[in-house]
Design a protein around this nucleic acid. Sequence first.
DNA 1: TGTTATAGGTACTTTAAAGTACCTATATTA
DNA 2: TAATATAGGTACTTTAAAGTACCTATAACA
Lengths: 120, 120
Amino acid sequence: MIKKKYNISVEATLEVIGGKWKCVILCHLTHGKKRTSELKKLMPGITQKMLTQQLRELESDGIINRIIYNQVPPKVEYELSEYGTSLESILNLLCNWGEQHIIKEYGDKFAVLEDNILNK
Amino acid sequence: MIKKKYNISVEATLEVIGGKWKCVILCHLTHGKKRTSELKKLMPGITQKMLTQQLRELESDGIINRIIYNQVPPKVEYELSEYGTSLESILNLLCNWGEQHIIKEYGDKFAVLEDNILNK
DNA sequence: TGTTATAGGTACTTTAAAGTACCTATATTA
DNA sequence: TAATATAGGTACTTTAAAGTACCTATAACA
């Protein structure tokens, strides 16, 4: 008999997209596939190690695809997998809620948000 | 001038509902207001300290209301605030996605999910 | 020749999140 | 009188998440 693992289904979701970085990575990927270096530019606070670590985990959970181009210097791209797109509506809602929350807290989102593709 | 704080709006959302317990608490509260002791029963893994700590933070972010009945032994209830209900659709999607993910991973959600109000 | 760009690995350290243990108050009930 | 239920506080410890530093490979180019 399989041992019970979750007390509530949302725990399974958090196991896949919880933590400091995964939602951020996935939000960027909802805007199309990205190279490792592009993701690094979009997330100035993340380290190389954390970025690849999170990407590996998302890949092994089937959320993203890793596309390797056989060239030097290396080129690798990441994109939402088909399964990963089932998270798109959640990711969009999370981003939109955050934007509204910032407006509520600070009045003006441009005061606390860096400019990037998602904040336009 | 206010210092920039977020690189992407979803970071603001995670500041409010991130971590191991907050989404779980909030998912339970989407089913109506709950006493502290009820929440503890619904979340067998949480400690008293973590529960009150998370509830305090959610309260100070305006997501939940704390209702105190003046009696002994004490009775306190928690409910989603009006602002908190703006998270309801997100919370429901997070729960539903987790359920589907469990089915995908384990075939049968009843094998890994404890019985409680949300799993019926 | 040696520097650059790209993607990533690994060992170690730091920090933040979470957990443990033990404490409070008071009306009610056995 | 002593135990019970309820909600919560606090000091301390443990664990897990995250960060730092340094390492690899190789073709292109100055």
